[in-house]
């Protein structure tokens, strides 16, 4: 039983770290919650001299929680100004104007 809890606690702690680093916002709280739950169960099933691992795992998940919460509250979702994209928009617009004039010319010729 304890071995299973160790496996699950480590697995969800690793997932919590991965999702905290990636830009998944509050979705990271899912593995964090499960890691905390299994960490606490592991703590309960451990003897006094076996509590080092669950303490480490719970500390890591607590740090992940704080990190995700901080990102959610403090980091604003924004789009960076992409010079390549801006240039592409200008060029596309210029091309479109030419294409419209060609279309008009074609219509004139047909008339």
């Amino acid at each position: 039983m304890r071995k299973l809890l160790i496996g699950l606690a480590i697995l969800f702690t690793l997932l919590a770290i991965a999702l905290s680093v990636l830009p998944f916002d509050t979705l990271a709280f899912l593995p964090i919650g499960l890691a905390i739950a299994f960490g606490l169960l592991l703590m309960q099933k451990s003897n006094e001299n076996q509590k080092k691992l669950p303490k480490i795992l719970l500390t890591i998940t607590a740090i992940c929680s704080a990190f995700v919460l901080g990102k959610t509250l403090l980091v604003k979702d924004e789009v960076v100004v992409d010079q390549t994209f801006e240039q592409q928009k200008i060029e596309t617009k210029q091309e479109a104007k030419k294409e419209l004039e060609e279309l008009e010319q074609l219509e004139n010729d047909l008339e």
Binding site: P23, D77, E78, V79, F85
Partner: peptide, 8 residues
């Protein structure tokens, strides 16, 4: 226009 947020 559709642009992903900088974090993505």
């Amino acid at each position: 226009e559709l642009s992903t947020y900088s974090k993505w």
